[in-house]
């Protein structure tokens, strides 16, 4: 008994924190999903009512479609743009210091507070003649000012998230490209490969594992995070940028339908599980962990 007692004692402060802030909230969310708790904050179990409500919610098709556009678009942008940045800053810019400087630039949005970052975006796309984009297009193209944020709301949301998120992929991909031995590139050059062929036939196939990791990671974080949307558009105009997680937040904390909000969150968690499993299958995860492919 003594042998396991002391380690658990040592771990207990941490365990208590984990239980308090991770386990209990998860448990409460699951419980809440089966109640019809509202602003009166009463626990009243209502069975599957909330789930029935989800599938008959008239907003549901729009929300699902928005979520697909947002997650798919941002994920694509993140992975592709992150890969391009990594490729440029590690392979095409061989000078190490320039590469590091270049990558550090792209890390800036990550270390600036989201509110500040979003303010810059809002200012850039602001309607009226004082918005930066409007001012620029008036000078160079002579075009009338436009209300970008209502016209292209989803696109701007994807861009804002994509520019922040791309640095994650960039860091993972750069270290993966750096892990490819120099001799492989030399061999490919001697074997007659052009730079384009080296990118396509050597680097890209060796990025399978990092691409999978970045995709799964970003997929999960994109499904559940909504702070940039909340700050940029608040889900609007109308429901144009209202995604699932934001909708759940709105129903719970703006409409005070805590039960319904929890049920929406619960469905999202299972969707995330399902999508992760699907991606692992898609990338042939089992074969990949069998042996390291770069030795």
């Amino acid at each position: 008994m003594k042998r396991w007692f002391l380690p658990y004692l040592m771990l207990s402060p941490f365990l208590i924190l984990v239980v308090m802030f991770y386990v209990i909230p998860a448990f409460i969310t699951v419980m809440l999903a089966f109640t019809d708790m509202n602003y009166a904050m009463e626990w009243r179990f209502a069975g599957l009512v909330n789930f029935e409500k989800i599938f008959t919610d008239p907003f549901l098709p729009v929300i699902v479609w928005n979520t697909c556009k947002y997650v798919g678009g941002t994920l694509f942008f993140n992975v592709v743009f992150g890969f391009v940045l990594a490729l440029l800053s590690t392979y095409y810019i061989q000078h190490e210091k320039s590469g590091i400087f270049f990558r550090a630039l792209w890390m800036l949005p990550r270390i600036s507070p989201p509110v500040v970052y979003v303010l810059l975006f809002l200012w850039f796309f602001a309607p009226g003649q004082y918005g930066l984009l409007n001012a620029l297009s008036a000078i160079f193209l002579g075009v009338e000012p436009q209300n970008w944020l209502s016209e292209y709301a989803m696109l701007i949301v994807i861009l804002a998230n994509g520019f922040v998120g791309a640095s994650f992929g960039m860091i993972i991909f750069s270290s993966a490209i750096r892990a490819i031995p120099q001799d492989i590139f030399r061999a490919a050059k001697v074997d007659g490969a052009t730079e384009f062929a080296i990118t396509k036939e050597i680097i890209l196939p060796l990025m399978k594992w990092p691409v999978m990791f970045v995709s799964v990671w970003q997929l999960l974080s994109l499904l559940t995070s909504f702070e940039y949307i909340l700050l940029l558009t608040g889900g609007g105009p109308f429901l144009d940028t209202e995604v699932w997680s934001l909708y759940s937040y709105h129903r719970a904390f703006v409409g005070f339908e805590f039960g319904y909000g929890a049920a929406l969150a619960l469905v999202m968690v299972f969707t995330a599980f399902f999508l992760t499993a699907l991606m692992l299958k898609l990338f042939d995860f089992n074969r990949m962990i069998k042996s390291s492919r770069i030795d």
Partner: peptide, 28 residues
């Protein structure tokens, strides 16, 4: 290098890990 028609064997062999033996040999 690609304009020189040379073959090279490296100390580390530098085989392409994501290609089979046949694909490695056919790469050039």
């Amino acid at each position: 290098p690609k304009e020189r028609n040379i073959g090279m064997v490296f100390q580390s062999y530098a085989l392409y890990p994501h290609l089979t033996v046949l694909e490695n040999i056919a790469f050039p």
